[in-house]
Design a protein around this nucleic acid. Structure first.
Lengths: 216, 216
DNA sequence: TGTACATCAGTGAACGCGCGTTCACTGATGTAC
DNA sequence: TGTACATCAGTGAACGCGCGTTCACTGATGTAC
């Protein structure tokens, strides 16, 4: 919790603080009406600033958006790391952390895993945070008790080179796509009125993942 | 292909034609830059009309958007029905039709199954077309050779009332969420640069669905 | 400790833009006698 | 077949709005001697 002993002047501290509040209010806007509703002017007014004042802290809308995406990724990494730190870094733990993180702010989830935001190219260079997320999922898959993930191998002809990682990687992708399938439909409100309990669906898919691993 | 013998006056025919062109250009805009980029004025200019001219055909942006959503649903229903008509109404046929339909216009897919569009409330009343889509998937699940879908039953305590539909319904939901998981991530470009072939992933998930059914 | 200067947060006005939408109006197309 | 009228497609100008962004400027905060 304690900040690093970086020699921060009062001004630098103030800048960080204001930048943080700007981003906080940006998240509120996004949570309320989606990414396209993000308005620099409204953020400024909300903080008692003139619209132009924001440009002391961000060079423009694009930079703000880029940093929001980065923060979103980092926040997911943190959630996963916390889970790992508590000794819950197995597939179940990560899956539940993922769902909790997504439900806490659906728009943030879609900013990372949703359709590309019109003005910005997020999937261009895979965010460094995202590769870490994948790495944690891979670790969890690797540590599973099941003997083989053969059913999830994608390219059998490629796994011949002795790399046990091929099946693990296939497993991780299935983990990702199946949970995303339930989660994104839930966050989109597609289950409303259909009588399904999204939490049950999610746990059921998760259980089926673990089951197929314990089947020797 | 032949129109119904409705007594259409030339004017009515012309109106339908212009409305159709408006929607066509609207789809082009959405395909190019997402739903939020839909601009009535640009559509009008593109057709050589003044911006105000559009209001002869749509009461406003909302009505146009609503009709686009309806058309998108109907188009998916048509794709499914065509597949059924060709005798390919099984799970595999529907799944492939779904993917082809999605790839033909990713934004259209997201308009139906994606995050709610800011200004419009699509999932309020389940579109009548969507319930038909679900119906066709249910039929396909029901016609599967497997003896039981027990692994997919969601609420075992509820399926005690002899309704065999409980397991079928669970199966249909899993069909939906798993394929959506792969498809939506593919359409979002999330697989780019990761070395996966989305088509292979999709077929693999589909195969696993069928496999678990053939296991007595 | 006090003065001179540089740095920087924030203002207010303006720019150009595109949006959805309204309104009074023109001109062509269809209808009724 | 020709005339009088109603319907309706489309225009052009305007309204109000909010957007991102720039620019010259003010006033407070920090720094150097």
């Amino acid at each position: 919790m304690s900040d690093a002993a970086a020699p921060t002047t009062p001004r630098e501290r103030y800048r960080k603080q204001v930048r943080a509040e700007i981003k906080e209010r940006a998240w509120e806007q996004i949570a309320a009406a989606g990414t396209s509703a993000l308005s620099l002017n409204k953020i400024a007014k909300g903080m008692g600033l003139s619209g132009a004042g924001l440009y002391r802290y961000f060079t423009g809308r694009d930079e703000l958006l880029a940093e929001l995406v980065r923060d979103a990724c980092q926040s997911l990494v943190d959630a996963f790391r916390t889970e790992v730190g508590r000794g819950e870094g197995d597939l179940d733990g990560l899956a539940r952390a993922l769902r909790a993180w997504a439900l806490a702010d659906p728009q943030r989830y879609f900013l990372v895993y949703g359709p590309p935001v019109p003005g910005y190219s997020n999937p261009a260079g895979l965010t460094s945070g995202m590769s870490e997320v994948m790495g944690l999922v891979l670790s969890a898959c690797d540590a599973l008790p099941g003997e083989t993930w053969a059913p999830f191998v994608l390219h059998p002809e490629r796994s011949r080179d002795g790399s046990a990682a091929a099946s693990t990687l296939g497993m991780a992708v299935v983990f990702w796509t199946r949970l995303h399938g339930v989660l994104s439909l839930e966050l989109s409100g597609q289950f409303i009125g259909l009588g399904f309990d999204p939490a049950v669906l999610y746990e059921a898919e998760l259980g089926r993942l673990s089951l197929s691993s314990q089947r020797t």
